[in-house]
Design a protein around this nucleic acid. Sequence first.
DNA 1: GGCGCACTAGTGCCCGGGCACTAGGCAGGT
DNA 2: ACCTGCCTAGTGCCCGGGCACTAGTGCGCC
Lengths: 224, 224
Amino acid sequence: MTEGFGRTVRVVVCDDEQLLREALSRLVDVAPDLTVVGLAGNGAEALEAVARHSPDVVLMDIRMPVLDGIEATRRIVRGHPRTRILILTTYDLDSYVYAALQAGASGFLLKDAPSERLRDGIRIVAAGNSVLAPEATARMIEALRPDLPDEADRVLLTAITNLTGREREVFDLVATGLSNQQIAERLTISRYTVKVHVSSMLAKLGLPDRIQAVLALSRLRPHL
Amino acid sequence: MTEGFGRTVRVVVCDDEQLLREALSRLVDVAPDLTVVGLAGNGAEALEAVARHSPDVVLMDIRMPVLDGIEATRRIVRGHPRTRILILTTYDLDSYVYAALQAGASGFLLKDAPSERLRDGIRIVAAGNSVLAPEATARMIEALRPDLPDEADRVLLTAITNLTGREREVFDLVATGLSNQQIAERLTISRYTVKVHVSSMLAKLGLPDRIQAVLALSRLRPHL
DNA sequence: GGCGCACTAGTGCCCGGGCACTAGGCAGGT
DNA sequence: ACCTGCCTAGTGCCCGGGCACTAGTGCGCC
């Protein structure tokens, strides 16, 4: 329901293969709510087309002569922030996905996608949202899923729950790089007391020194 | 092209509202390559339906009586790893998305999605890939995009490029928590020499001690 | 050749970190 | 009333970290 009641989405198609350009153009135009307003054969032409038509969405290939799709995306996003870029490429490389999104693209689809998925993707990015190729989505989810901590870190996690309130506070402050003196001031207690907490904290966690505590927290942060 | 030439995808629909269950069922069945083989009114019934029909995909609501969709997902994934779960919910909460994916769901869509997007989502997860609601995709991409380093960290990044080869080596080893002695053994040089490298490294980076080096590298790792 | 730079090794000095140990106050449970 | 656990404060001790300074070697560049 998010889409469908806006005015028609105006699209520029950018690909260096003329045949594909025309084919894509027809695939887009069969949808009554989508209309192709311009074509481009490379990134530079895409910039001109965007300047001329101010489209809602640019369907952008990556590998193109003169100016590639990534750099074109970067420039369009900078100069025309209301125009969204949907990358459409043959190659499902993580580096492509990453570079495209980094450049400001709103979506990334593969050319072997069903045409309805392409049209839906255009509607999605036109609405200000994002779309990814299913393969890329799967890998991205995999990457987001924090990998399970190893045995040693699992022991650490349970040990952390056994810390007293003060020890836990001190642990967090130590892990942010504060000295005992700084922690003392933060907690308005004496540095001697801080040393006590640090020592018992390290002992309970089985860590040799505060540096290992810093590393431990940075490793375990996703799991806390 | 990834989809379309497999045999029909067998689907179980799980939702506690009977009306919606039937409506979804019809929406799925209009596609010739999709067929609903079972219905369930809560997570427990979903487990039974999966055991009986071994479906390719379960369309799963989250908020349900008896057994919620997240827990049901966890159990199905464990017991029937070939059955994929596509979460379908009304609420676009990050915590839902995260919990669902953590539980092993292959996809997460919203109930206000166009029905063709739902059908496409089923095909995607049946093919072993993943699909996310466009809103969730946008937020996930935002989360993945490493936020730009602040001014101080940008200075650090350039300073790091000015380190000599040895200093850079030492920097990396320091940042993994090694002591000067351990670094010396690793590089087969004396600990006095290590101290020299550490000192000049810290000076060039403007850091007061090795702990800040540890923290700096953990902050900047995505940018290196 | 001479200069600069990186890498090496060492000494001396100070400080902060970590440990052992003592000790008082305060809460909660038997 | 007693004990236990937590938080507090302090002392003494040792060690590793960081800095200043000296100094030899090798490499590349002018």
